[in-house]
Computed example of a mutant assay.
Amino acid sequence: MEGLVTPTINPTAIEAIDLVKDYGQGDTAVHALRGVNVRFEQGRFTAIMGPSGSGKSTLMHTLAGLDSATSGRIVFDGADITKMNDNQLTLLRRHKIGFIFQSFNLLPMFSAEQNILMPLTLANERPDRRWFDQLVRTLGLGERLNHRPNELSGGQQQRVAIARALITKPALVFADEPTGNLDSVSSAEVLSFLKQSVRELGQTIIMVTHDAVAASYADRAIVFADGNIVADVPNPTAERMSDLLMAERERATRAAIR
């Protein structure tokens, strides 16, 4: 196991304590998370990696309150979200958590600007135009605001989706395979903007990815296997993360043969 204790420099954004998530019961139960303990710092970009079925997506969904925990605690903004009801979780996600998805999820009939402002429109809230302008400038969307999604490239659509995720000034942003539908050039562009959002806008981003190159843009990368954290790497490189994933796949293959 590799360096699981990471010095905490910034305040904690969200923390999982003895987090367990099981699907099913008895002999057929799937243990997706096995007592996970992990802390994510504010103003940092963290990647979560691992093979399919390792638990990385389950961790993200549970941290975001999209899936319930079997046991354990998740502390976010001073509260244990595992004790919240559906209405409280909905409000939490609406005001304090942003989401970036692989499939963009933009509304095709609306312009880029309307898509960016949609979370505020749905909440009947006025936008902070200074923050909007800063997002647009940081993400390089100034000349694309009147374009509809079908008039934008994949990378531009994802940048609109990033701006939409940030427009409510969320304390935390979850990105689920944000470059999964993009070519290598657009992927590099989007990852650079995510990193820039952390550096210049002070955002906290947790990204699930299977791509070692994508993970190299993060400040920290966590590797999952069999519902546990098996590596916690500061300042990850693509080569280091690729080696770790390869080693984990080989270990899993050996275990399956036994």
Rank of each mutant, 00 (worst) to 15 (best):
F224I: 03
T168M: 14
L141W: 02
L145D: 00
D86Q: 13
H147N: 09
E41A: 08
Q42W: 05
A221M: 14
A225P: 05
N228F: 02
W131T: 02
N85Y: 03
R126K: 15
A238R: 10
M84D: 05
H31W: 13
A188W: 06
R220E: 14
R129P: 07
A112F: 10
A255Y: 09
R39T: 06
S184M: 07
L201K: 01
H31D: 13
F76W: 04
R240E: 15
R39K: 12
V198M: 04
N228S: 13
E248S: 07
M207H: 01
R129Q: 15
A171G: 15
R130N: 13
S187R: 04
L92N: 02
S68N: 11
D211P: 07
P236F: 01
R144N: 11
L106G: 11
Q134C: 07
I48V: 15
V185Q: 15
P236D: 11
V38D: 04
T6P: 09
E143P: 06
F99R: 02
V136G: 04
L172N: 12
T62S: 04
F76Y: 09
G154F: 01
L120G: 05
E151S: 09
G142H: 08
D176F: 00
V223F: 11
A256Y: 11
F110E: 10
N146R: 12
G142D: 14
M207N: 03
G154W: 00
E200W: 08
L117S: 03
